[in-house]
Design a protein around this nucleic acid. Structure first.
Lengths: 330, 330
DNA sequence: TCAAAAGTGTTATCCTTACACCCATGT
DNA sequence: ACATGGGTGTAAGGATAACACTTTTGA
């Protein structure tokens, strides 16, 4: 491109990380600010900062520097998600700010006792931001109590104009939220968030200048909002992690060195938001050959001691797509 | 990000499109320049240009404008692939050019007679750039004649230092090229290209200032090279398309309105680079419910006339992941 | 009548899902 | 002894992969 004779049009690049960990049965997301209190000015923000090509050779190096500075948490696995470039999304069209493009990243880490160190930073349960994504106890009540009425109103006022992928509003609702016979696909976190955004059912939508959904006045109540487009980046991260886990052993980036099979299942359930069938999960783990017994037992839980396992790194060489291919019920 | 007190560090954003079509059994990639002749100065380049946030509200709008200007080809389906930000890759570290970040896109189109219109633009067979990716006639000869000797030398001089994903050089070779018992996974196009790049076996590697592989002097012969990082973007596009086709009906973006099942199979084989088993392919298509018979027959091929089919848009509403889930032999 | 391409039937195997029961320990 | 969580066996149904043969047309 630099060899072309086009004029240079500079923009600023923002790097933003969705850093995920799990504690017990709780999936966590690391926020840099807004971790304490629920005041409007304390809106949660992911660790982020501008990309500085002079000091950082790659995006990833720059990202790690921002995360270290803003949170003090060490991250292992890092993966690029998506680059968001649309104006008029989190900054209004009439804004005179320099144009910002944000590159979103997914990162994984293990919970350890000291972290995080930076003031204001902390881990928060990710289902606070996406309560409709937690199906471990069955279909969340707020889908039928709040989301579906709001979406039905959105369908009613929107007519049948088709959208991306040639789907009308009513078809998108059915497909994404598993109404009448449709399946709920836990990987479509982003599509669901964007549908709620378009429908004016999330706070960011109103903040960006859209009409709130009728009946929701100023504050749509669906989940806690985040700064800028951070909740959209978190949605992308959740969907990607839920998908990737099935064909890459990324889950072990969030597990301790040794763990019981129940702990592994609890972690997978926390991330996928689904309840899994115990025996099938264990058979699956055995078949996938991703773990091996350490020979030790864990007496931590109170009942019968559980065998401890560790991740088998050799699967990376043995199988093309090593992961936990959980199906409908695990 | 704009609300933070960080200084603004502007960079230039380049948008680059890998636009794919199929004619008969030949997968094609649209090049903006370099379509005629094989002289070094005629190195092929994908359609691309800088992102101008003042005139284009989104990346996609900007991208479509560049493609229209440089090639005259209309594109339908468009999908973002990846954002490449590393310095010292296609511009040397000591360069004083403004820093360029490139956002790669995959786009699909149908071959039609008039296109392309712009001078120097044209469609080229994509396996010219990736001859090792075409396994339709079995394992390509150049893998064992040229690639493996080069990679074995790379393994020998590199020792066992582990790389991304904790794999050593020898393990990566085995996994990516399906040596001794390993499977060749047709989706890993990018990983294979990057391995060959690191090994000094592609022209871009030498151009970027690396040592050519021993014995290859100045011009590593593996496939035709492209400008800047365009071959890397094409590799990403090929891998993504090969994967996506299995769970989204994107293949129909490249098919005419009506087609025979054999034509559909030929197209899938062209993209995936694999030979498929006829009966299993047909059963798969039937089971997936992605097409319906038009009732017409095609007399175009010479032998027995074939039934014509069309894409069934309704699958988008009926199934969560409609696509052609081709397995080992289709 | 023959070549060329379209189209079909069947079986063995494996994987997925679903079911309900026994085991080992700490209190 | 009993509560708590750990761990297992087995069978039905569906999907996959592999096999070879028949049909319909144009030349």
């Amino acid at each position: 491109m630099s060899s072309l004779s086009h004029p240079s049009i500079p923009v600023e690049i923002g790097l933003t990380a969705a850093i995920v960990a799990v504690r017990g049965d709780t999936p966590l997301i690391l926020v840099a600010r807004g971790a304490r209190g629920d005041a409007p000015e304390g809106v949660a923000a992911l660790p982020s900062g501008p990309f500085d090509p002079v000091n950082h050779r790659t995006f990833e190096i720059g990202l790690r520097a921002w995360v270290a500075e803003q949170t003090g948490v060490p991250v292992g696995y890092v993966e690029q998600l998506y680059t968001f470039g649309d104006r008029g999304r989190h900054s209004r069209a009439e804004s005179r700010d320099p144009h910002v493009v944000s590159v979103g990243y997914l990162a994984l880490t293990r919970i350890c006792d000291e972290a995080p160190t930076a003031p204001g930073a902390g881990f928060r349960e990710w289902y606070r931001f996406f309560p409709w994504e937690d199906w471990r106890q069955g279909r969340p009540g707020l889908i039928d109590s709040t989301i579906m009425p709001g979406l039905r109103a959105f369908v009613a006022r929107g007519g049948d104009s088709t959208h991306r992928r040639g789907l009308s509003r009513i078809e998108r609702v059915r497909l994404l939220f598993g109404e009448d016979g449709g399946r709920f696909d836990e990987e479509n976190v982003l599509d669901r968030y964007e549908l709620l955004y378009e429908a004016g059912l999330v706070q960011e939508s109103v903040r960006d200048g859209r009409e709130p959904a009728p009946g929701f006045a100023e504050r749509p109540p669906l989940g806690e909002s985040m700064q800028a487009d951070h909740r959209r980046i978190l949605a992308t991260a959740m969907g990607r992690l839920r998908a990737k886990m099935k064909y890459r052993p990324v889950i072990f980036e969030m597990m301790p060195e040794n763990f019981t099979l129940t702990a592994l299942q609890t972690t997978v359930e926390a991330i996928s938001g689904r309840h899994l069938h115990k025996q099938n999960f264990r058979r699956l783990v055995e078949a996938s050959a991703v773990v091996e017994p350490t020979g030790e037992l864990s007496h931590a839980t109170g009942g019968r001691p559980a065998a401890l396992f560790r991740f088998r790194r050799e699967v990376l060489q043995e199988r093309p797509a090593p992961g936990l291919r959980v199906g409908i019920r695990g």
